[in-house]
């Protein structure tokens, strides 16, 4: 199709699904991470309500990432899941606590604190586990005879812990800027104030991880400075700094939409950077995109529907967001 290999089209689609997941569920999880910063129950209520109608759709992109990998890169799926066994299981269990808290919290008074804590703890653990999984992937996964060939604790290193904390902070930034957009009054001011240190810490983490990444595998540095990705590598510090500056100015001037979009922008730049490091590998250091792909019959069959359905999904997801646009007002809505 258009002279492009099907497996590379699919790698792009999976990468897109994971990116959409990261930025959409990123602010959901960020809200959970920021939950202890609320002053009272009313503030926690509006924080949670700002994503209650959409969180489920946001999380579905994670299922598409996993299910899509299973469908079109079954070998990558079969290698990555056992390699990241512990972080994946922790993430799944954490997402259970986070997900049910959306409903359970409203169904009990005595145990409301329990589910508040479940929402917070689940969000923190899921964010850490995802970040650790990313770090472990960047470090590289040993593959032999179509199977994971490493040990059960290979994923745990100082680097993967660092990426875990980095993602946690990044999600908190997304959450704070989302809440700055959706809430008003004291809690909005509070979240806007929290967004500043979160932004600084995110930048620091981004820099640190970028410096340490080529140490994980020298080919990463080589990939950064080959043509044409070198263009992006040179531009990226400028893009990040410009975005960060716009974010900072937006927060300082009390803007609402711009800081949120800038926070999303930081995630997109970082994500493209990871993509350049990996390409053309799907599981570094040795499993390539074409090699891990399912047979063309599978790729073609899945692509026909995906090409039609993803735009439709994006359209009705956008509609659902539009239906619930605007501020959450704490003084109304409860009767």
């Amino acid at each position: 199709m258009f002279g492009l290999d099907l497996s590379f089209i699919w790698a792009g689609i999976i990468a897109f699904a994971v990116l959409v997941y990261v930025i959409l569920d990123g602010f959901d999880l960020g809200i959970g991470i920021l939950f202890p910063f609320a002053h009272d129950e009313g503030e926690r209520d509006v924080m949670m309500n700002s994503v209650a109608p959409v969180w489920d759709g946001n999380e579905t992109w994670l299922v598409l990432g996993g299910g899509g990998l299973f469908a079109v890169f079954p070998l990558a799926y079969a290698v990555v899941m056992p390699a990241l066994y512990a972080p994946i299981i922790v993430m799944l269990l954490a997402l259970i606590f986070r997900g049910v808290a959306f409903e359970y919290r409203w169904r009990t008074r005595r145990w409301k604190r329990v589910w508040d804590f479940g929402f917070f703890g689940g969000s923190v653990a899921a964010a850490l586990a995802q970040g650790v999984a990313l770090g472990a992937l960047v470090q590289g996964i040993a593959v032999q005879d179509r199977a994971y060939a490493g040990g059960w604790w290979d994923w745990l290193t100082a680097f993967s812990l660092l990426t875990g904390v980095a993602l946690l902070i990044g999600y908190a930034l997304l959450g704070a800027t989302w809440l700055n957009l959706k809430l008003q009054g004291r809690i909005q001011q509070h979240m806007r104030a929290l967004a500043r240190p979160a932004a600084l810490a995110t930048l620091a983490m981004l820099g640190l991880v970028s410096i340490l990444t080529p140490l994980q595998d020298p080919t990463y540095a080589a990939r950064w400075f080959r043509w044409p990705s070198a263009l992006y590598s040179v531009a990226v510090p400028a893009l990040v700094l410009a975005t960060a500056w716009r974010l900072w100015r937006g927060l300082a001037r009390g803007e609402e939409l711009a800081p949120f979009l800038c926070a999303l922008g930081l995630f997109v730049w970082a994500y493209i950077g990871i993509g350049i490091s990996f390409y053309p590998m799907i599981v570094p250091p040795s499993l390539g995109i074409a090699e891990a792909a399912a047979p063309d019959d599978s790729l073609r069959f899945a692509l026909v529907g995906t090409a039609v359905l993803i735009p439709i999904i994006l359209a009705y997801t956008a509609y659902a967001y539009w239906v619930f646009h605007g501020k959450i007002r704490p003084e109304e809505g409860y009767h």
């Binding site: 489920d56 999380e59 579905t60 299973f70 079954p74 529907g305 009705y316 659902a320």
Partner: peptide
């Protein structure tokens, strides 16, 4: 997963694309 993924996987991907998103998108 590695061996049966090419057959089972696309069916599940279609489940996500045609069902899960539909449910989640309109549930709210």
């Amino acid at each position: 997963s590695d061996r049966a993924g090419p057959v089972i996987g696309p069916l599940m991907a279609y489940e996500v694309l045609t069902a899960f998103f539909l449910e989640a998108g309109f549930l709210g």
